[in-house]
């Protein structure tokens, strides 16, 4: 593989990774926020404590989190082919990635909500605020820096998972690294992809942390 071929391959792989990770993180944020909220609200006596809903939601999250990602990948094949129509390509790989990251993010977001000062919630209740007011104007506002940190961590772990998803037909940077770097002994390709990943992950981590700090007003 010459340089221009390498650049071309890297470009294609990067786009595939971006697509997988992008789809997964968007859905994970939406569903993870909802699930995280449910987990938090149903465990908080001040709001809407509900043991049954909490246990069911918690069980669902725990089950997904306890299945190793490679196995989840295989288990979800029927779901993927039903949803996307195929089991190959970045879109198909996005399905198990999404499922895994929803569960991952939901727990982290629940934690971010739990960090919110209970006194502020109580003060809002004392004003006559309903659960909806408290979600919109207290929980989401106060927990935002924590939520940004949670998304940062999740994004980084999705990138890691995407390499695994790539090897079973999803494509992307991880797939490129294994195909050329491992099977064809082109260590330079492996090397470049690793550097690329390290740089990207660093950038995400640093900017996520910066953003969270700027948003913290304490």
């Amino acid at each position: 593989m010459n340089t221009s071929e390498l650049i071309e391959a890297l470009w294609v792989a990067s786009r595939e990774t971006l697509q997988m990770v992008g789809i997964a993180i968007v859905f994970a944020i939406i569903a993870g926020l909802i699930l995280g909220l449910i987990l938090y609200i149903t465990s908080t006596p001040l709001l809407y404590k509900n043991k049954i809903i909490n246990v069911i939601a918690g069980f669902f999250v725990n089950v997904i989190r306890s299945i190793p990602f490679v196995i989840l990948l295989v288990l979800l094949v029927p779901v993927t082919s039903m949803l996307v129509g195929t089991t190959i390509g970045p879109k198909a790989a996005a399905v198990p990635l999404t499922v895994a990251s929803i569960a991952f993010l939901a727990r982290l977001i629940e934690g971010a909500f739990a960090e919110v000062d209970k006194g502020v919630i109580e003060a809002s209740l004392a004003m006559g605020a309903g659960v909806k007011d408290i979600i919109c104007d207290v929980l989401l506002v106060e927990a935002l820096p924590g939520i940004i940190r949670a998304i940062t961590v999740t994004l980084i772990s999705i990138i890691g998972f995407s390499a695994m998803a790539g090897t079973v037909g999803g494509g992307g940077i991880g797939d490129l690294a294994i195909r050329f770097g491992y099977y064809r002994y082109q260590t330079d390709v492996m090397f470049i992809t690793v550097i690329l990943l390290v740089v990207v992950v660093q950038l995400i981590q640093i900017s996520g942390e910066k953003l969270a700090n700027v948003l913290t007003k304490k």
């Binding site: 000062d117 006194g119 502020v120 109580e122 003060a123 104007d137 207290v138 506002v141 106060e142 935002l144 820096p145 948003l215 913290t216 007003k217 304490k218």
Partner: peptide
């Protein structure tokens, strides 16, 4: 309240 309980953000 004792600890004011304002929304920090």
């Amino acid at each position: 309240f004792q600890h004011f309980n304002l929304i920090s953000r």
